[in-house]
Design a protein around this nucleic acid. Structure first.
Lengths: 347, 347
DNA sequence: TTTGCCATTGTAACCGGTTACTCTAAACCT
DNA sequence: AGGTTTAGAGTAACCGGTTACAATGGCAAA
């Protein structure tokens, strides 16, 4: 481990001069600088970022705390964050709350002194608990969390308008009896999507209590819904699943029961997972650009780090896009944005 | 920012005592300890991990450097690493070399002083260049890199035997003329798979120069191969694509040309991406447990950090598993491991 | 009562950099 | 020439913890 002291000694200068030469300060003569850099090369010196960030009070790192690492969604968010972070020379420190409140506190505490800012995706249950753990002095942006009691900037997906738009589209295709397969009850995304569905049914189709089947975002729960639909002889000419995963399970089970999609029944999902376009028929869904979620949040965090003041009022809501494909009999590939501001102030 | 000094003052003790009380050292009286902890609560003190790691010379963090963040593969690796890291209370610092050599050096340098060890997945081209950047004093495990000039422990996938086994299986299904769609030329995985294919054809089918079509792991290149196959009237009764992505593109294009899979031609891929089982017919492929790649590497790194000495000789080779599905007309879901040691010393 | 030992606690050096402040000497001025 | 400015380099404090070593004091042993 060669240190700056070693370099200084080798170059025959003081540590201060060595430091200045390495960091390109102007008040160093050319020959002195050359001598220092030669010593750096010779000793193979690499600055100790840990020590440096201690004095600079700047780590060039942002902490990312996610509730869990579930496949596609996680990787896309990270990719989006990294894209922006990388441009600004920032590093990513990953924290995982693994669902538990205790771990969340630990993850956040462990970040102290290691990061300049935090990107946090609160767990579904009681995100308000977070406020107790978060350091008010540490710039923080919330991911996938729309409003609430915390006065922090956040970026979220407009699930409500997305679901509303999808329901509207199904009705426009001529469906009369649209059934919704809901997501987990405690999940914020799922609740908002259900609300969007119910409101659209009430406003457009004048149906006050539309049929809603329970689900938990899993493929199996989609299949279960299909069985309920078929065996229960629930009258339905369209199904709107709260996510693609369930739509996939639903379609497979419907096919097994001899029902044709979209011939007998239209199907739509939400998320646009990669699988969606490869199904046969391909799945109509609301496209959520998950990476945008990450990159937008990172951009907001960078603005705060540059000195701007952002609060909940400067939140960003990402609007999902309707992608009409085979399962609604539509022209495969056409895309329409949900009716809502693309990027707008919230509050 | 409350510091340890503040806590000590508040509790009426010295910083040394405060530090000892907080870290649970035995030589502190109960009342003193209580006073310190009360002060911690009152001032909302959270230790500064950066400063702590400077003196302890231990960061409880491992650096993960990946060539790029491509979807599924990346997220699965991270998930595997995190699984093990989390158990040991380790954090993950993400570095991204974004393909370039220059960035790789920068990413590795930036890790100095921030991590206790490194998990590096070398880029396809000249992984040997790495040795110049890597700090020999920093425990390092290589990911997805099988042998080479670096004497570092690594974990890799046995692409060769996997491809050999798949080719063997296709021949066993009665195929006479198997065509391979290769991956990018500079890609190590792709080359090994092609080698496995060629050797199997030579040894089992006694074909010395089997047909090999170019590809680049993309869906489009799979479709292109299909067109070559159909228009060029290349005699073939089975196609082994170097990855699933290409197999997907291939199948879609074959279907568009009116060819039936597996009726007219058998198809197999490699990787077992989630999409594979959802295709219709479902795709026969070699299952690579990518998360295992990450968790195994992390486990090796932990062993080094605990003081064990590991070198290239203690590498781990993960053997992929054959999953026979619809595209080879087989019993969907049966799985057979490739003939090779499951976990074994290499070299 | 004095000495010795041990359990607590305090002092200060240190981890590896950064930088405010000081010092020296060369260059500039009248 | 004498005084002043200023560029270049050095000294040392500091970031926020940890810990070796020193100091204190209470109690048992002599």
């Amino acid at each position: 481990m060669t240190t700056l002291r070693d370099v200084a000694r080798e170059a025959g200068v003081s540590v201060a001069t060595a430091s200045r030469a390495i960091n390109g300060h102007s008040n160093v003569t050319a020959p002195t600088k050359a001598a220092v850099l030669a010593a750096v090369k010779k000793l193979n010196f690499v600055p100790h970022s840990g020590a440096r960030s201690l004095t600079r009070r700047k780590t060039d790192t942002v902490g990312v705390i996610l509730p869990d690492l579930f496949g596609e969604f996680f990787s896309e968010i990270i990719r989006g964050i990294d894209l922006v972070a990388h441009e600004s020379g920032m590093h990513l420190l990953l924290g995982n709350m693994h669902g538990s409140t205790h771990e969340t506190a630990a993850a956040i505490a462990a970040m102290r002194g290691r990061v300049d800012g935090l990107l946090v995706m609160p767990p579904d249950v009681k995100p308000e608990l977070l406020s107790g753990y978060l350091d008010p002095a540490l710039p923080t942006v919330l991911l996938n969390y729309d409003a609430g009691s915390l006065d922090l900037p956040f970026v979220a997906v407009d699930n409500y308008h997305g679901a509303y738009a999808m329901t509207e589209a199904l009705l426009a295709r001529g469906a009369k009896q649209v059934v919704h397969i809901a997501g987990p009850k405690h999940n914020r995304d799922a609740r908002d999507r259900q609300r969007g569905f119910a409101d659209a049914m009430a406003k457009i189709a004048k149906v006050q209590s539309p049929a809603i089947l329970p689900g938990d975002f899993s493929e199996e729960s989609g299949a279960q819904a299909a069985r309920l639909l078929v065996q229960g002889r629930l009258p339905a000419d369209a199904v709107f699943a709260a996510n693609d995963q369930m739509a996939v399970g639903l379609i497979a089970e419907l096919a097994a029961s001899g029902m044709s999609v979209p011939g007998d029944i239209l199907v739509a999902g939400f998320d646009d997972i990669p699988l969606a376009r490869h199904l046969n028929p391909s799945l109509t869904t609301m496209q959520v650009n998950i990476d945008r979620l990450g990159s937008t949040a990172m951009m907001m965090l960078l603005r705060i780090l540059r000195g701007e003041t952002l609060a909940a009022a400067s939140a960003t809501i990402l609007t999902p896009t309707l992608v009409a494909r085979g399962t609604t009999g539509g022209a495969a590939g056409s895309a329409v944005a949900a009716k809502a501001p693309v990027l707008g102030a919230h509050g």
